[in-house]
Write a protein that binds this DNA or RNA. Structure first.
Lengths: 225, 225
DNA sequence: TTGAAAGCGCTAACAA
DNA sequence: TTGTTAGCGCTTTCAA
């Protein structure tokens, strides 16, 4: 930047203002501005984001943390779609996305506090005490995704799936079409997950509410389709 | 850091050396070191990666750029597995992974030159002139993944799939088992991709080399399985 | 073994 | 409209 400033016979301030949007009211004459841009182009100037980040304490980067990243390729495509959606929204708004390693929590604390992230989307947030404590002391905002419902007034945003409500809607839909034998089918490997449990309960209740006959089928039934 | 230094009655240099691995030969007495660590703990000190990055010109971050990120959730899981593999290796080596938006190439140039990335893994690198020019002028190393084979001596590393060689091996294997009716099956949506074309050619040649009978089947045949 | 001082490249008061 | 100056938090010679 100094090279550009000297070559253009202006201050680095002027260069900064012209090339990087400048502060409130970019007060540089169009003449000078054009000249600066020309020189910058000629000198092949590239702004250094590291310096700017340090100075402004902003990185335009948010982290995404998966509780188990390994499984991204296995199982259902849930994780993949999630990442895809998060990425597209972030990019659209000029943000970068950094994938965080789901390693030891000590390191997680370090990651969240080192200034490189402006926020974190935490998928499948565990609700153990350690994690809750971490959340309380984190210097940046965290959004918990697909986590268990929050217990108390934590300083965290949650985006969750309304499993019970969804099952109620699903059963209602089929019921109104006249169906009475409505099965709940699950993948055996998911059976003990909170989501699956909640859905099954939602299904049971929705059926019971209509005095219907519950029917639950394990994953082998999939092969019938 | 200055707070820690003052509270411990040492210089920031000492703090830096003790808390952040220090330069060549961490020459601080164990006594002082322990004290510094204690004070840092008490003051809840967190190193600022932004400042360190700026000073050292290192970020321990590599970017990953997909030619079409949107499709990550659709089609085959190729992209997902790729990302999974890249991430696990990077994390294991203390690197971060930043997903890059596959927007206009101007911005890509900016992304690569702003100092935040130490290298880029570029998946499905197009070989148009614009991209080649970009690669030539990039300030950081690029690894092209699953791109077309390089034409000339470019300053880029390529990691590609040996489609012809793979088909030769596959045909050889079946042939040696005694099979003579060997079909090449493709997904119709992939038929015009470079990979599929190369594989088909490899198949044709491997079959021809053995005076066998080529047989190519489009995707509907998948449904038979 | 320890610290003083310079500086990474940029931005933002504040003055002119 | 333009420039001067200080400083973000850290690392690293260099001298003591």
């Amino acid at each position: 930047m100094r090279d550009v400033a000297e070559a253009a016979n202006v201050s680095t301030t002027a260069v900064s203002r012209v090339l990087h949007g400048g502060g409130p009211g970019v007060r540089v004459s169009e003449e000078r501005a054009a000249q600066i841009r020309a020189v910058a182009e000629r000198l092949n100037y590239r702004a250094n984001a590291l310096a700017r980040n340090l100075r402004t304490s902003r990185t335009h980067t948010v982290g995404v943390l998966f509780e188990n990243m390994r499984g991204m390729g296995d199982g259902p495509l849930y994780t993949t779609h999630l990442l895809d959606g998060v990425a597209s929204v972030l990019f659209r708004n000029g943000y970068r996305l950094t994938l965080l390693a789901e390693i030891d929590h000590n390191n997680v604390i370090g990651s969240l506090g080192d200034g490189q992230l402006e926020g974190v989307i935490w998928c499948k947030l565990a609700r153990d005490e350690e994690t809750v404590a971490l959340i309380r002391s984190t210097p940046i905002p965290i959004v918990a995704f697909n986590a268990a419902t929050p217990t108390d007034g934590e300083a965290t945003q949650y985006v969750n799936c309304d499993n019970e409500g969804g099952m109620e809607l699903a059963v209602e839909h089929l019921w109104e079409l006249g169906h009475r034998k409505i099965a709940f089918v699950y993948e055996s490997e998911e059976y003990s997950t909170p989501d699956c449990i909640a859905r099954r309960e939602g299904y049971d209740q929705a059926i019971a509410r209509r005095s219907g006959v519950p029917l639950t089928l394990g994953s082998p039934w999939y092969l019938v389709f």
